[in-house]
Design a binder for these strands. Structure first.
Lengths: 195, 195
DNA sequence: ATGGTTTTTTAGTTCCCACTACATAAACAT
DNA sequence: ATGTTTATGTAGTGGGAACTAAAAAACCAT
């Protein structure tokens, strides 16, 4: 059987370009012409490879979380829960207002409100934020079991609090806050930890 | 001189309807046909009264802040800074996931990322979030002066922290968090206060 | 080389967006 | 009543959105 014409672009490179656009403009704000021109391909190639705009976004999101999720695991892997949270929040604060990348976490900025037609995307973003919160909660549960946190600690509530601070840092980063300001926020937030 | 045909709709009522739509769908996600049909008027009436979509949004935003700003003043007016922050955060937590209104603060949800053509709106939203942060800072400065906070307190940093928590609460509310969960977040956040 | 398979290119499609020209209607001043 | 002014309803405008039909191109197997 014949193999057909080979793809002329690299899927992962194209996804990275798409990711940049979606990250900066959000799901609804990114137009197909911006996406295709950033990716260096024409619409039919995009549709053949990714289905539609929504499919492309989900793939770009996967790629985003591959990277960011790795950093999160790294932070959570710190030996003590205090250091883990320090890393988590401080890295978030500095990564989210770096030059060269859009400010704020994409899971927050890419779509909180929007038209009916993109509600599935908003749900997906909320689901992934929730998943990230769950990972933090698991880290707190482990710490509690290991005696790294007092027995009366509520891991779920503490995880939601840390998540809220990170989300808040994203909002402020998107609004133009400086790295120093966000690091102060992270520092204050850590005072809640009973460690 | 003649007075002309009187307006057949109430501007404030129309703004409230527009506000609902913008709050739920964001600036870009709200279409003119949704807006006009919610407001019960036809496009020419809208343009005559408010200029364009951007003008309408700004007026709706003014109305939003009239209400929410009042509640904020009320909270900040509490005698002690601790009570002030308790009210601020707890009210935010419960108001932001009420049935009958969109979840999350509109200043956060209506637009964090988007196309070039709506960048002025995003700047405006960021400016207003910043203004709200400044009011909190002023309250901390007063508390410091009154001896309600220790002398080594950094009012600006503390205000940004509280703002970040509120913004994070908005993100979680938009994502479907429950009132109880958000109130736990508020409660934990308050532990940072040295009072 | 030829046929089969898949991708790319070109050039559109339809639809909905924000916005408006124009004629009509409703008020007041004279 | 008539003219002036402003608001309204009808019916559109041009433009950009997401998406695609069809032909040409690039590969492999025989």
């Amino acid at each position: 059987m014949a193999m057909g014409r080979p793809r002329a672009f690299d899927v992962d490179e194209a996804l990275d370009k798409a990711l940049s656009v979606f990250w900066e403009k959000g799901y609804e704000g990114a137009s197909l012409s911006e996406l295709t021109s950033a990716m260096g391909i024409k619409p039919p190639s995009l549709y053949a490879a990714f289905g539609n705009k929504e499919g492309l976004f989900r793939r770009a999101l996967d790629r985003y979380e591959e990277v960011k999720g790795g950093l999160m695991d790294e932070a959570l892997a710190a030996p003590g829960v205090r250091q883990a949270m320090e890393q988590l929040l401080c890295h978030a604060a500095s990564l989210q207002c770096e030059k060269g990348a859009p400010h704020g976490c994409m899971l927050v900025t890419a779509g909180l409100a929007g038209g009916e037609e993109s509600s599935a995307i908003r749900d997906e973003l909320a689901r992934r934020r929730q998943a990230s919160c769950t990972r933090i909660r698991k880290r707190f549960e482990r710490a509690k079991k290991e005696g790294d946190l007092p027995g009366d600690t509520n891991p779920a509530a503490l995880a939601r609090y840390v998540t809220a601070v990170m989300n808040g840092i994203s909002v402020q980063a998107a609004g133009g806050a400086t790295k120093k300001e966000l690091q102060q926020v992270a520092e204050m937030a850590l005072k809640v930890l009973p460690v």
